[in-house]
Amino acid sequence: MKLGFNLILGGVLTGLVILAGLLAPWLAHFDPVLDADLMNAELPPDATYWFGTDAQGRDVYSRMLYGAQISLTVGIVSQIINTLIGVALGMSAAYWGGWWDDIVNGLTNVMLAIPSLIFALAVMAVLGPGLVSLLIALGLTNWSWTCRIARSSTLSLKSLGYVQAAQTLGYSDTRIMFTQILPNIMGPVLVMATLGMGSAVLSEAALSFLGLGIQPPFPSWGSMLTDARQMIQIAPWTAIFPGMAIFLAVLGFNLLGDGLRDMLDPHMRTRKL
């Protein structure tokens, strides 16, 4: 199978983010929180502080590595929650139809009508700031597209011979969904999950930027941007490097999702986003 350019570049960028997060304790030069030193505040990038230091004199490079952990956790965990909800609702709605389908469809449309960031903001306001509420908020608000994809894929499979054959062979509905339908809709669902990771990283940055996500002094790319905002003219490196990290991570997830889609679905190969 020929690997696309998107898949390779996306894989490399995503791999870099994963490596950065996993190896942060070994790659970092300083502790991201404790090594604050006001004497070294707002230093431009040099040999010791590769990406410079922030207002508290902490190493931007080290904080960015630890920030990758947050971004990855948020991206992966929230997408797992989203995918579980979306697939469970979409698949069962398409399979059973009737009033359940109507309810799920209505719910999906409501979710699509409300901007997910606003919804996440509301959930965060109720749950209070912090990583766990961030995961819950982003996990509960972005399942609508996955749900739609799962539903439409299931609809197209439902009338196929092998699903009907499973019914005539005595399979229960849940067994049919797990053994016959789920393995055959995993492709598009996986693509949606990967693309969703990019937007989850962005939402995390946005919520942390607004002060609702990761709380200081712990580093996340969004909260680093918040801190950098006030001194962007005197210490632009504090904003540029976390911004670049967000940009590259989101680009990586999106390219990976695109590449996966092209690989899993040959009919889409010619279409470009």
Partner: peptide, 23 residues
């Protein structure tokens, strides 16, 4: 469904859609 399965089975028209491609 389980009892019915022992009584009647079906052969489908399209052999390309009647087998689960992942099994």
């Amino acid at each position: 469904r389980m009892e019915r399965a022992m009584a009647a089975q079906m052969v489908f028209q399209d052999p390309y859609a009647s087998l689960n491609p992942r099994q």
